[in-house]
Amino acid sequence: MPLLKIEGLCKSFGGLKAVNDVSFDVAEGEIVGLIGPNGSGKTTLLNLLTGFLKPDAGLITFQGQNITGYARSNICPTGIARTFQLVKPFLGFTALQNVMVGRVFGRESTQDLKRAAEESKASLERVGLVDKANMLAKDLTLMQRKRLELARALAAKPQLLLLDELMAGLNVSEADEVCNLILNIRDSKITILIIEHIVKAITTLSDRVVVLNMGTKIAEGAPMEIIHNPQVIDVYLGRARA
């Protein structure tokens, strides 16, 4: 049984079919890359998975449980955590408090704030931010905020982590650091669905790649297969005219 199963998912905004009959699976322990040109429906798909949008049709099954149309605050407790394309830290909180929200309200929700604080420190340690624990999120750099967002999602103890363009806005060496972090997270048995524009990052990280174009899935397969797929090259670079 796949960890996540998406079947015939549809979402329209007025006349625009943002996600059109998309189906694919994510198996436990995999890193699946989701790519496609701007406006191809990647973020919409992620918003459908996390309850930020309600699908018009289709079925989302997570660990055998039908989670289609769940309220967005009910998604994380089932074991799915996400990051945002434009980071959304709790600006007036310290880094530690940011992470604590994930720990306290996530999958293993708790009343014990003291223990939650200690475990949240461990999450900060994991992303290399523990020395900034008492700094306010508004005083962190973009790179630190991205790490913070990752630590916060990890503290929620997800089985599936959805990463929305985590590397956007980072320079090459920072992006490499984030790549290593993601591989490190996978090694702790967390399944990852990653949306990314940087093709190199996707090909190094992903076990499998799903390609969207204009809301429709046009290809799925191993990274090397995908980057040589003529249809994928077409949508990214335009049709070659001989």
Partner: peptide, 26 residues
């Protein structure tokens, strides 16, 4: 303010979308 409730409600104040994505029902 110093309880789980306080953490949740202030998180909603700071960034509602993020709070909801972490399991806080705004």
């Amino acid at each position: 303010l110093n309880s789980r409730f306080g953490l949740g409600i202030t998180a909603v104040r700071e960034e509602e979308d993020a709070a909801e994505s972490l399991g806080v029902s705004a």
